[in-house]
Design a protein around this nucleic acid. Structure first.
Lengths: 214, 214
DNA sequence: CGATGCTTGTTACTAGCGGTAACCCTAGTT
DNA sequence: AACTAGGGTTACCGCTAGTAACAAGCATCG
């Protein structure tokens, strides 16, 4: 049990793992989220059981793959969120960063939003809750902490911040998804519209027709 | 080609179709979205090919199934949205209606959010865009039309309304999904927090620490 | 009456998936 | 030389979606 040997092997295994992940990345980027384990193994130049030895099951591989992209995206978002500017500018920069990312690599984005979808036959468990992609959850929590750290929201601020975190992330996600499909306007316009929504223009707008009854 | 006969057969087919849909409904409600065609056929007391004759493929069945629930939910939402009350109350009622629905039947909700996920092997097409569930899209569009009809938003109102429609729906969806998993507060509190967000409390809140640079 | 279709239903199959058991082979250790 | 440890492969299991191909019941036409 020599430690140097162990680290040697660990390193080798880690390098292999990274190679496999990059191959998987290529396949997912080409075939979308339904890339098969066979295809990934073939792309990596090896066969299935090796994949399973490294990642356990398809969910494990997908989780590892998703973590890389999610971490990268979250780093960008944190940078935008931490920029030295006023709140509105920071919000717009964060929205724009996210939208630019999903615009640049839609397949990766799609993969992140529709992960494993697993559920092997023998498993009787049926996880209500945790439907959405881990990316959404992580972004929501991240934003919640930022909000709670920086904003003075009075009593119940922690809970309020978490609701807002997940809500805002969901708004960004859904609007981005729709925008990516239809492209009804430029990215800048979308960012501005969403920021306007968050800035209370919905509440401030006047009614169009007659009295408030309608 | 007697018309009466034709309607006769049409009626019979429609009744069968409804029976099959109800059986499928039971199975999906029990087994979740990964219910197999075999299981659905067994529940309906028949065998697979009949399902395929009626619905084409799994996507077809799921689409038909989703349409029923989506229509029902949209009707409830429209009712809440059309209530004779002021805007804030209507928004809160709509949020609450949606959240109550997903709370009452989480499996149906999950099914609606993670539909077919189809993609047969031979099909090289890869539809970027249209990732999210049809339910989200339809709710977004619906809300957009309501906003555009009732609010005076100045120039570019149509585009703004659509962005807001999809954004608000996404906010509701993501917050609801998270809430369903963690149950960190009551439904009423969640509704209130989200309405507060839409009412601009994010923009109105004060900074917690020092100057605006941070 | 018999033949023709049409709908309803079945059995039996294909092709591909995720996942695994069993084996092989090479390297290094004692 | 014997023996173990990993990396690798073949061949399989059970499952899925989807599809022939065939077997009735029942109307209509010649």
């Amino acid at each position: 049990m020599d430690t140097t040997q162990r680290t040697e092997q660990q390193r080798s295994a880690d390098r292999r793992r990274r190679e496999l992940l990059e191959a998987a990345d290529r396949v997912v980027l080409r075939d979308g989220p339904q890339a098969s384990m066979n295809a990934i193994a073939a792309e990596a130049g090896i066969t299935k059981p090796i994949l399973y030895r490294h990642f356990g099951d398809k969910g494990g591989l997908y989780a590892a793959l998703a973590k890389r992209h999610t971490d990268a995206l979250l780093d960008s978002l944190r940078a935008a969120l931490d920029a030295p500017a006023d709140r509105r500018e920071r919000v717009e920069a964060t929205l724009d960063t996210y939208l630019a990312a999903i615009e640049a690599r839609p397949q990766v984005y799609r993969f992140l939003m529709h992960p494993a979808e697993g559920g092997q036959p023998g498993d009787p468990g049926f996880d209500v809750g945790k439907h959405s992609a881990p990316l959404l959850r992580r972004m929501g929590e991240e934003l919640a902490t930022v909000i709670e750290e920086r904003l003075d929201l009075g009593p119940g601020s922690q809970q309020l911040a978490r609701v807002w975190g997940h809500g805002i992330v969901g708004m960004m996600h859904a609007a981005g998804d729709w925008w990516l499909g239809e492209r009804p306007c430029t990215r800048a316009e979308l960012v501005r519209s969403l920021a306007d929504l968050l800035w209370g223009r919905l509440a401030a707008a006047g009614d169009k027709m007659g009295g408030p009854g309608f």
